[in-house]
Amino acid sequence: MSDTTIPPAGGRPGDVILEPTPGAQLRRRIFGNTGLIIGASVLLIIFFVAAFASVISPGDPYDQVLSRKLIPPIWHDTPKATWDHPLGTDALGRDYLTRLFYGARISLFIGFAAMLISGVIGTTLGVLAGYFGGRVDMVVNFILTTRLSLPVILVALAVVSLIGSSLYVVIWVLGLLIWDRFAVVMRSATLQIRNLEFVSAAQALGCSTWRIILSEIMPNIGNHLIVVATLEMAHAILLEAALSFLGLGVQPPEPSWGLMVSEAKGLMFFDAWLITIPGAAIFALVLAINLLGDGIRDVTAPENRN
């Protein structure tokens, strides 16, 4: 914000408005939050890359050309580096940039789908516990404690290895395991508002419990929900990468970023870029989502910043 004296959008000319409208205040907070802008931009770019991977990729993610294997990226000062493969090729001669682009699809899809599943489970449990309290709260707390005592990566690995690995197995296993933060946050958010006047008013009017939860409680905890959702999506992406890295997530020849690091592990001493590039991609994606989440929290509830 370089010039704060501009009257807020929506005001008629000639009006003397001392206080900016709530919309203008929100816009100002959004654009004043560097982390939010950076996170949203990077996420948007990655989303764009994933959506149009088939159009903007220079090659095919599965095409193996063994005569062109292990070409270094263009910033390496060797005659082998070529603009045909800007990020080089892997040990099977597949174009690394193309695999990176297609890998964005897998990360975003798994992260989003696992977040949806865990969000539904965690929000349901959390809101019920917060709204009803008492025995319901005790039961939810018990389920939550049990879930927390299970080591996530270990259980995920064991279950995936027993059922057999596929994209959907990974999504369901992660979704069923990482709902804990949703439940904790939604429970305390619901607790905070369940005794407020508008909820009491709805109860006095004789609204059904479902109606109160859906149309009085849910809209008021939505901002917390979005923040947890972003953090959990980032969490799911990291877990998928770790599972794939350990060989029990996404299976070859799919171009998952975690799997790309795993495949390059044996070559890291000679061709370090093979692990640096996909690792940096995971890092950038997770960082962007986290920045977005932190940004949304700061913008919607600035009083909670510290």
Binding site: G35, A234, L238, A241, A242, F245, G258, V261, K265, M268, F269, A272, I275, T276, G279, I282, F283, V286, L287, N290, L291, D294
Partner: peptide
């Protein structure tokens, strides 16, 4: 912020690469 976004296996391999190799 950076720590929360870094995949642990990648961080480990990167440490290995610089300090070890």
């Amino acid at each position: 912020v950076v720590g929360q976004a870094m995949p642990s296996f990648w961080f480990a391999l990167t440490l290995m690469l610089w300090f070890g190799i």
